[in-house]
Lab assay of single mutants.
Amino acid sequence: MDALKSAGRALIRSPSLAKQSWGGGGRHRKLPENWTDTRETLLEGMLFSLKYLGMTLVEQPKGEELSAAAIKRIVATAKASGKKLQKVTLKVSPRGIILTDNLTNQLIENVSIYRISYCTADKMHDKVFAYIAQSQHNQSLECHAFLCTKRKMAQAVTLTVAQAFKVAFEFWQVSKEEKEKRDKASQEGGDVLGARQDCTPPLKSLVATGNLLDLEETAKAPLSTVSANTTNMDEVPRPQALSGSSVVWELDDGLDEAFSRLAQSRTNPQVLDTGLTAQDMHYAQCLSPVDWDKPDSSGTEQDDLFSF
């Protein structure tokens, strides 16, 4: 819950932080000083300027060897085509990944977070970031790969997607708890209302004896509580940590079903599988986004697919 609360507080303090972009060759504004600060901008989305290598189908939802083989196929196909790589912007948030063309600003792909089953910074092609997700059109699994400016960037994108998945799962947990509370309150309110109706004398007997209905007592009954809980029953509950912020979080049926399955089948359902080692994760978390744009010590960066 700490990640969720800190993310909400950060967004309320400075929503404009989320509009910064990394990996864009110096076009961005001043960047936060450390990885923790940038992680807090996830709610509205972190932007990464990358190059799209392509996509291939895979048979399993996750796995280092599986993704490595898929990336190898994608890279080989991209090299064989001889075409310049498409420059894209990857927007990562707890909602998922939005992929747009840098030149036309046209939407290429919009992947809900619950469809993503794996992401990684490839070991062999260490400047490549990739994720595996279920197609929104059918049940097939797709591996999408992107060329980053350097290994640090690939690791940073991988960690960002993993963190977005974690925050999304926490949102789901909060929403589920809130819905259970509202359902319980609604049920209790309905029981109270039913009890009051059972003990209320029939209207005919009131008229016969000349008694008047006590409207004041009726007004004191917990009807307002019942209506408050039943009027918006169809509205999706939102985490309290975000009250007053500009973010509107809505959970669709697909996300609810997917996270429910994860909660039942996995020990740590909030953790998205990645190909990063503990050492890689520690190294990337210690980086400032400013470091992502620094040239690798191995030599001059080449803006070309064939540089790796």
Rank of each mutant, 00 (worst) to 15 (best):
D2R: 02
A3W: 11
K5M: 11
G8R: 11
R9I: 09
A10M: 01
L11K: 08
R13P: 07
S14F: 00
P15Q: 10
A18P: 10
K19C: 09
G24C: 14
G25C: 13
R27G: 12
W35P: 11
D37S: 09
E40F: 02
L42E: 09
L42A: 03
L42R: 15
L43Y: 14
L43H: 15
E44K: 14
G45P: 07
M46A: 15
L47S: 09
L47K: 01
F48K: 00
S49K: 02
S49F: 14
S49L: 12
K51S: 06
Y52K: 13
Y52V: 06
Y52G: 02
M55S: 07
T56Y: 04
V58K: 01
P61D: 01
G63K: 01
G63T: 01
E64L: 09
E65N: 11
A68G: 07
A68H: 10
I71S: 00
I71G: 00
K72G: 15
K72H: 05
A76G: 13
T77W: 02
T77L: 08
S81F: 06
K84F: 05
K84E: 05
L85M: 12
Q86I: 11
Q86P: 11
V88L: 07
V88Q: 09
L90F: 08
S93I: 13
P94S: 13
G96P: 02
G96H: 12
I97W: 01
I97E: 00
I98R: 12
N105A: 06
Q106C: 14
E109T: 12
V111P: 06
S112C: 15
I113V: 12
Y114V: 03
R115S: 10
I116Y: 02
S117T: 07
T120D: 03
A121M: 10
K123H: 07
H125I: 00
D126V: 00
F129E: 00
F129G: 00
A130M: 02
Q134G: 11
N138M: 14
L141G: 03
E142C: 09
E142G: 15
E142A: 14
C143W: 02
A145I: 01
C148K: 00
T149V: 11
T149P: 15
A156Q: 15
V157P: 00
T158D: 04
T158P: 12
L159E: 03
T160C: 13
T160D: 02
A162T: 04
Q163D: 15
K166Y: 09
V167C: 11
V167N: 06
F169M: 02
E170A: 05
E170H: 04
V174P: 05
K176A: 09
K176C: 06
E177Q: 07
E177R: 13
E177D: 15
R182A: 14
D183M: 09
K184V: 11
K184H: 08
Q187G: 04
Q187N: 03
E188A: 13
G189Q: 12
G189C: 02
G189H: 05
G190F: 03
G190M: 02
D191R: 09
D191G: 06
L193H: 03
G194I: 07
D198P: 15
C199L: 06
P201G: 09
P201E: 04
P201T: 13
P201N: 07
P202E: 14
S205N: 08
A208D: 13
T209K: 12
G210S: 11
G210F: 03
G210V: 15
N211G: 14
L213Q: 12
E216D: 06
L223F: 04
T225R: 11
V226G: 08
V226F: 11
S227F: 03
S227H: 09
A228T: 10
A228K: 05
A228N: 04
T230V: 06
T230I: 09
M233T: 12
M233D: 08
D234G: 02
E235N: 05
P239R: 10
Q240L: 12
A241T: 10
L242Y: 07
S245H: 03
S245K: 04
S246T: 07
D253W: 02
G254T: 14
G254D: 08
D256N: 15
E257K: 12
L262F: 02
Q264V: 01
R266K: 04
T267R: 06
N268I: 01
P269N: 04
P269H: 03
Q270K: 04
D273I: 08
D273N: 07
T274C: 03
T274A: 03
G275C: 06
G275L: 02
Y283C: 14
Y283T: 08
L287S: 11
P289K: 09
D291H: 11
D291F: 04
W292G: 06
S298H: 08
S298G: 12
G299H: 05
T300H: 10
E301G: 08
Q302M: 09
Q302L: 11
D303V: 06
S307G: 01
